[in-house]
Write a protein that binds this DNA or RNA. Structure first.
Lengths: 342, 342
DNA sequence: CTGTTAGCGCGTTCAG
DNA sequence: CTGAACGCGCTAACAG
């Protein structure tokens, strides 16, 4: 049988209460006694039964997810995954709340975080935006003892405990690599559509893409980036214009959201020359259908469900100072072709 | 506060013991009483606290993993992941044992399964081999009330509860698609190395690859499949011969294990013509290095850690008739280029 | 067929 | 500073 607190108490020659104080790093134990208890713990190889502990204290983990408002499918999917997690709350001992904030708006995000700090939960997961105010708000939350995970979009240099998202530089490189391979032997122009150059992950994707593509196929030229604000309408207008201006476009890399607009522009395009190679991000009903129909050649994806579940696991573990299975929390860059759709 | 068994007992006007009997579908309750209790459960929206239940019964889940002996890196990695899970046993209330069996040997596997049935655990995860004896042994285990998950290699049509592995037909198609794209405009021969045509997943990969490749690029011819028994030495000999016989080989698809041999053959090859495009399965230290150095162009991977953790979650859930998060248990076909290595 | 009671491993009063 | 006793939500004897 596994050793229990009773066994510790016995071998250390103290009572249960003392053992408990040592276990939970609470004051009221003489240093010598504490040492005896810790020695006993090591000796009998005690591992605390978190399930029993949580039962005893009726612990629940209040968690807040802060995500941008907006009607793109990716964020809708993310929200759905959070709601799915909310429905599992009873079993997972979580109490999850969602806060909407305006997108790409640092000050608003910062004040939302400050509002959360009024009644600090155990953990906060936030889709970050780069802005000094956000850095500071996160630092304040952290100082209040709140565990913090950035979600989808990171904020390097801030005191967040973890980033639940993909390596966007690597994602851009991967897209560049595929584009270069798919266009080998060809020359011409490649267009890039982003959401906003204000978010770090979009910049990273662009950097990775550019450098890898030109390295692999110097005959291709990358056109100046178009910013569609992750909005289907704006993306549609930009891409339609671009296709008109470059009837012989070799490729399109869409590294943000709002791909509905991209797909519409591709579908209604006059079928003159060769079809451009199209690589997009995030698997949604729209991009999935476009992959099947051949309008899009490859989709790079981050699994929103995985990101949400991972964020929750990490916030809980962080809240009571436990370790996680690192490999389980790595968010992969999924590559989908029409052949391996889920 | 969440409703508890006490609340059920009170609203149904019965005792705790009766509630417990109903909850655990045990005999000794009159149909009418049972109905009253179930009504109360529905009314107050009771959800059972599994953690508390497991604590009370001191439940542990005895699990057995049956895996093939052999020195290829993939199986070594799989074993390492199982051992990692064993080290987490205390927290996860599992008691995991590993059984080695000869590889690609149906009768041996069947008798190993029968031996396990002598002292039936809660669940068994098995790397399946297609053979009538195996089907029957699994059916017997199932009949003994053991939860069964096939791991890595499936046995469709057998009464296993779940398959923790990838869709190998889709994996083959994906490989064919990449090969076709990477070799667009070129003609020539493509070689295929498998482990054994006796395992279903290798056959599936081959089928998917062949059909997709010829559809995409009819100018390529697929050479007769070579069977390397997942053994580095045999794979090396086969590939070296093939490279000698076809100095202008366009591509190689290695759909099994033993890629150490493949890489060695590629590395020592006389550097005459164009390098063949090489696509392999399973990310190991060897294939990872070959990807970086450019000897291999793409690696399709199944995450062994994910497969093991998934198998455990499913066996536990199955053992006490619970549901799982379906999306979490889908094993992806990971595609690695040199750009997105972990 | 049904109810009473004593734990599972741990946290938390409240006396000493 | 330390210890005894009770309770978390659920199960399992053992009575009735």
């Amino acid at each position: 049988m596994r050793p229990t607190v009773h066994d510790i108490a016995e071998t250390a020659g103290v009572s249960l209460a003392t053992v408990d104080r040592v276990l939970n790093r609470r004051p009221g134990v003489r240093a010598a006694t504490r040492e005896r208890v810790e020695e006993a713990i090591r000796k009998i190889g005690f591992v605390r039964d978190m399930a029993a502990a949580n039962l005893a204290k009726g612990r629940v983990y209040p968690l807040v997810f802060v995500i941008p408002r907006g009607d793109n499918s990716f964020m809708a999917g993310l929200k759905a995954e959070i709601e799915a997690a909310m429905s599992r709350s009873p079993q997972e001992r979580t109490a999850i709340a969602i806060r909407d904030v305006p997108r790409f708006d640092g000050p608003s995000l910062a004040s939302a975080l400050d509002a959360i700090a009024k009644d600090p939960p155990a953990g906060v997961a936030v889709v970050a935006v780069e802005h000094p105010d956000v850095h500071e708000a996160i630092a304040r939350l952290k100082a209040a003892g709140v565990a913090i995970v950035t979600l989808v979009s990171d904020l390097p240099g801030s005191p967040r405990d973890h980033f639940a998202g993909v390596d966007n530089l690597a994602a851009g490189r991967t897209a560049g690599s595929l584009m270069g391979r798919f266009l080998q032997g060809r020359s011409g122009a490649v267009a890039v559509v982003a959401g906003s150059m204000l978010v770090g992950d979009h910049r990273d994707r662009l950097d990775g893409f550019r450098s890898r593509l030109t390295e692999l196929n110097p005959a291709l030229t990358v056109l100046p980036v178009m910013e569609g604000q992750d909005d289907p309408e704006q993306v549609h207008a930009l891409v339609a214009d671009c296709l008109r201006a470059h009837p012989d476009l070799a490729g399109i890399y869409s590294l943000g959201a709002g791909n509905r607009g991209l797909i519409r522009a591709l579908g209604t395009r006059g079928d003159g020359g060769m079809r451009p190679v199209v690589i997009a991000h995030e698997l949604t009903p729209h991009t999935s259908a476009a992959l099947t129909s051949g309008l899009i050649d490859a989709v790079l994806n981050q699994d929103a469900g995985h990101e949400v579940r991972s964020a929750i696991r990490i916030l809980k573990a962080q809240a009571d100072g436990l370790a996680v299975i690192a490999a389980q929390e790595r968010i992969r860059i999924d590559i989908f072709l029409k052949d391996n759709l889920p």
